[in-house]
Amino acid sequence: MSVGCSPVPMLKWIKADLHIHTVLSACADLDMSPREIINTAKLLGIGLLAITDHHAIDNVAACREVAKGTGITVLFGMEVQTREEVHLVCLFPSEDLADSFAALVAQHLPSNWLSLGAGEIQAVVTANDQVVRLDQRKLLASLDLSVEDVCGAVARHQGLTIAAHVDRPQYSLLANLGFVPPELPVAALETISDAAALHKKHPSTVGYPLLCSSDAHCLPMLNKEKYTYFYVAEDVTLSEIRMALKGEGGRKVRIEN
């Protein structure tokens, strides 16, 4: 028995979805409440979620509260729209760091808030699905920050940046910027394509880990053909995810049907 070494944690495969919207995103259905999301994830055997509303983190804590005792881990996340209209999923290791990042984002949203369209609702809710308040500012707008600025700010908040839905014809790194900018510190690319097809069409994507997330705006979207699986310690943290994306310490990631 070795002395002075930290014990090797038990690793296991965990089904994950790192891009989910709640009722705080105007484009999401009203059934995307913390209870419904966590219940659906439980039914689907998803063990790791990231809640990623547009430019807001207010509903993450409620989702984490509902997830308590279920074995499901919920990460603090946010989906950001850069100056170039590129969508980035940003994940953070703690509420404090996510809060601090959210404050920074608020400073870079347009000062002349657009109002919400008819029927659009952005609701901050409790773990009991009670509405705390309605956010009337249109949260989905481009920040006055470039993709590089956002990646840098996320790194300063000890977070991870994932380029969202890179195969979409708009709001994606590949459509808007043509190719992955050299040395952009994105931890992974979110795609629905298989690796070979993506690499053939976009050679600049070679070398980046790929993830498959739902970008769910309604409950049925959580049920997908393919999922990301992480081989990580049972007590999942963002650093476990970081290790898996880098293939360190026996941690790994794969996409499977």
Binding site: E84, S146, N176, G178
Partner: peptide
């Protein structure tokens, strides 16, 4: 165009590219 992917597919040599896009990727393209 503002979407660089469109320019990659359609612009021709000696074209003047008119855009709102100020990201560094415009230079490489």
């Amino acid at each position: 165009a503002d979407l660089i992917s469109l320019v990659m597919a359609n612009a021709k040599q000696d074209d003047l590219w008119l855009t709102h896009q100020g990201h560094q990727n415009i230079v490489a393209l």
